[in-house]
Each structure stands twice: as C-alpha cells, then as structure tokens.
C-alpha cells in the first residue's frame, strides 16, 4: 500500500531558499577590483582638489581678504593679490564668449537644420576636429594672423565707440595721423578672439547634440501648420534646446577661463584692474602661473596654488551649473 505524502508534512521541512545579492567567486573579485579602481581614482582626483585647498589655506590666512582686492603681484615686497588677474581672466573669457556664443549657436543651427543632408556628417566631424586642434595652434593663428587686424578693428572701435568705457584706450589719440599700433595689440581683446576659436567648437558640439534630439514629430507639426523654417526653429528647436544652449555656453566659458597657452603667447603681462579691453596688456590667472612658477619660492608657490585654487573653484561652479542646467532641461529626457 502506497502512502501519499501529505503536503503538511513536507511544508514543515521546506524553508525558503536564501537569496543574496552579494557576489560570489569571480564576481566578488570583479566587484572588489572595480571598487578599488574607483576608490583610487577618487583619491587621485579628489586628492588634487584637496591638495590645492590645503596649499591655498596658508596664503589665504596670511593675506586674508586683501588677497582678492590687491591687484599687484610682487612677492619681493610681500604684496600679493589676484584682483587684476581675476579681472583679466573674466574679461578675456567674456570677449571669447561674445564671439563664440553667436557663432556656436548659429553654426549648430546650420548643421542641424539648414545644411544639406549630404554634408551634415562631414560638418559634424569638422566641428569635432576643430575642438581637437591644439590650443597652441590657435595661439599661433591669433598671434601672427589675427592680431594686426584685431588692432585695426580696435582702433576703429575706439574711434567710433570710444565714449563707451570698455572701448577706451589710455594715452592715445584715435584721430592722430599715424596711429600707435603698439597700444592696441597684445590686449584682452586679441587674446579673447584666439580663445573664442577654442571654446566655439565645444559649445557648438553640445548645442548641435541637443538640437539633433528635437522630436521630429514636433518639427513636422510646426511645418504642417504652415510655419516657415525659421518659424519652426524659433517655436520648436530653440525652446527644446534651451538647456543645451545654456549648458554648452557655460561649458565653453569654463574652458575659456582656464585657457593658458594662447593667452600667454598673445598678451603682454600687466597687473592692473581695468575695463579697457582694447588696451595693451592684461593678465589672467593661468598666464600668471605660467609666467611665475619658475622663480617661485615655497611660499610664492603656495600663493600661485591659491590663485590656481580660486580659478579651479570658479570653473567648477560654472561647469556644475552647466551640468545642472543640461540635466534639468527637457533636452536630456529620454537620452539615457
């Protein structure tokens, strides 16, 4: 006679299988090693930031608030401040963005909306290639090719718009028979033009990327309602890509603030807080570091590191702002 096992008896012995997300075997090794790599990168990259802050601290404590208000950089006389270089950094970056922003926006629009489909991929590659061109090449271009013409443009601006403070040039007469070209070269204006060539492709690439994600249905709807191409762009593409426009611009601004070698090649150093961007001589944080690191003693090096730390904080704020804007906007939706 067979006995049928009763379910009750069986159930008493069965216990639920233990589920565990913890990795075993090779997976454990993989997870642990990946974690180690991540931790080491965190230590390296975070260490740079922490080191800068640690090195900057003595300088900031010694000079206090005057570090930000003093414009001279004379370590021999114990007078150190970054007001002039910060002003120069901002003016070079603003000139760069003044040229780069409209060009980047319009070029991105051209590539995504106006260009014939045949050459579109070529243009995209060209912009990416432009972003990869070394900054020293743009420095050469700006110094040897653009600067003479930029000086003429500066003279013209001073002649006709000289009543605006930023277009004034001290100690010159714009209507003199022969103009003194040396007063108009090596200025923040010239450096800004060269830097704009560097940041334009970066900003343009981000904007184009976002524009290309515009839902085609919405574009077609605008066209079907009778919009012209420009009407379609203003009513669909630009509102959709607003986050990308702001984000790309800020990313470019972050790069423009930290640009070194083109600025060092072009400007002649001057430590003076001045809004006159056309006038010869200015200085940025990075050109200050590049120019002064060689003869610096330990305490001066600490001061340079403090200046670098301030520059890093500014670019960090700008880049973080860009990331937040791009992530918050509708443009980023559905990309992941």
């Amino acid at each position: 006679m067979t006995t049928i096992p009763t379910p009750e008896a069986e159930l008493a012995q069965v216990s639920p299988r233990r589920l565990s997300r913890a990795s075993t075997g090779a997976d454990a090794v993989f997870t642990a090693s990946a974690r180690t790599i991540g931790a080491s990168v965190l230590v390296i990259t975070g260490g740079v930031g922490a080191f800068l802050a640690w090195q900057a601290y003595p300088t900031l404590r010694r000079y206090g608030w005057s570090f930000f208000t003093e414009s001279q950089w004379q370590p021999d006389q114990d007078v150190i401040g970054i007001a002039a270089v910060l002003c120069g950094t901002v003016s070079v970056a603003l000139v760069a963005m003044f040229f780069a922003f409209p060009l980047a926006l319009l070029t991105a629009l051209y590539i995504s909306e106006y260009a014939p489909a045949r050459i579109k991929s070529t243009l995209v590659a060209l912009i990416d290639l432009m972003a990869a061109v070394p900054s020293i090449v743009y420095g050469l271009w700006g110094f040897f090719l653009i600067m003479p013409h930029a000086a003429e443009l500066a003279l013209w601006l001073q002649r006709h718009l000289g009543w605006i403070p930023i277009f004034q040039v001290a100690d010159t007469d714009p209507n003199a028979a022969t103009w003194d070209a040396t007063r108009y070269v090596s200025s923040a204006f010239c450096a800004g033009i060269a830097v704009s060539m560097m940041v334009m492709p970066m900003a343009c690439a981000v904007m184009r990327q976002v524009f290309s994600q515009t839902p085609p249905g919405e574009k077609e709807a605008a066209l079907a309602l009778g919009a012209t191409k420009w009407g379609m762009v203003t009513s669909v593409v630009l509102p959709f890509g607003r986050g990308g426009i702001i984000g790309g611009t800020m990313l470019g601004l972050g790069r423009a603030l930290g640009e070194t070698i083109a600025v060092v090649l072009i400007v002649s150093p001057a430590f003076e807080v001045k809004p006159r961007i056309l006038e010869v001589g200015t200085s940025t944080v990075s050109s200050l570091i590049a120019g002064r690191f060689g003869e610096a003693s330990t305490s001066q090096l600490s001061a340079l590191l403090a200046a670098g730390f301030v520059l890093f904080l500014i670019t960090l704020v700008v880049n973080t702002g860009a990331a937040v804007v791009v992530n918050r906007s509708r443009s980023g939706a559905g990309v992941d």
């Binding site: 991540g38 990168v41 570091i289 590191l305 670019t315 880049n319 973080t320």
Partner: peptide, 28 residues
C-alpha cells in the same frame, strides 16, 4: 552610493584647468 560619490568628484575634476594640473605635479 559610493559610485555616486566617485561620479560627482570625477565630473567636478573635469573642470580642473590644465595649468593647475601641471602646477600640482610640479609642486608635489
């Protein structure tokens, strides 16, 4: 959670100006 921290720091460090990276190695 740790990966999120790493990502935040790495993204922040892309803002490091190249001259400051050079100055860091020079100092250390």
């Amino acid at each position: 959670k740790f990966a999120r921290i790493v990502r935040t720091v790495v993204e922040a460090m892309t803002a490091l100006p190249s001259i400051v990276a050079g100055l860091f190695v020079y100092t250390v």
